[in-house]
């Protein structure tokens, strides 16, 4: 596929299905939800709309704090890239199911994109609730096949010489993108930087930009 570079594509090593199935309570929710939708008792779009109302109520601010710290504290950045789970836990953000966090860093030559082809595994302790598009079949299938096209749909057009790495989340492993610090932000402190960092940049479908600096 033109423009598709899968150097970083992290296919799992086991090929006979999944070692880790979701917890009992998650399966009960999925069971009830799928039955109610199938019977036409609830509209999936209405559920998504309700959940979207709250998706910023947890999370993205946690991830933004992690990113801003990495931008301003080189020692923290090193710890974060070496052991994402431990460095993120320094903020007190941990998943309850023991999933590991891996942080992947964008640069002028490498752009990282996170997906969960399987379902919607998502680093919710740092990013909150996944947006509806992240859970969509279209994103899940296309992000791997045509990441450059998916990014263009999000309004992010990358030069052809930028390598795109697609990271496929699993129940055990969740990815967070460390975006590039925007040019011209040298004068900003950690709190001001954190305010610039949005959820989409940490999934990899956007870059962080200064207000008024254009896309």
């Amino acid at each position: 596929m033109a423009g598709h570079d899968d150097h970083g594509h992290d296919h799992d090593t086991h090929d006979d299905g999944h070692d880790h199935i979701p917890s009992e309570v998650v399966l009960r929710v999925k069971a009830l939800e799928s039955l109610l939708i199938e019977k036409g008792l609830v509209d999936p779009a209405a559920l998504d709309a309700l959940i979207d109302t709250y998706e910023n109520r947890i999370g993205p601010r946690n991830g933004a704090a992690v990113v801003a710290r990495a931008w301003t504290d080189p020692a923290y950045r090193e710890r974060l890239l070496a052991d994402g789970s431990a460095a993120i836990a320094e903020f007190g953000y941990t998943g309850r199911q023991g999933e590991d966090m891996v942080v992947v860093e964008n640069s002028a030559t490498v752009h990282n994109l996170v997906v969960c082809t399987l379902c919607s595994c998502y680093p919710w302790p740092v990013l909150g609730l996944p947006p509806a598009w992240y859970k969509s079949q279209a994103y899940r299938s296309r992000a791997v096949i045509d990441p450059r096209g998916v990014l263009a749909d999000f309004g992010l057009v990358l030069d052809d010489d930028v390598e795109i790495r697609v990271w496929d989340s699993t129940a055990e492993l969740r990815y967070l993108v460390l975006p590039e610090r925007p040019a011209g932000s040298e004068h900003l402190d950690e709190a001001a930087l954190a305010a610039l960092v949005g959820r989409d940049a940490m999934i990899g479908v956007a870059k962080v930009s200064l207000p008024g600096a254009g896309a």
Binding site: D12, G17, H18, L118, C119, Q137, D168
Partner: peptide, 11 residues
């Protein structure tokens, strides 16, 4: 479905 879906495929 989770146990039997190969990784890389949607469940």
């Amino acid at each position: 479905a989770y146990r039997t879906t190969p990784h890389g495929s949607p469940v």
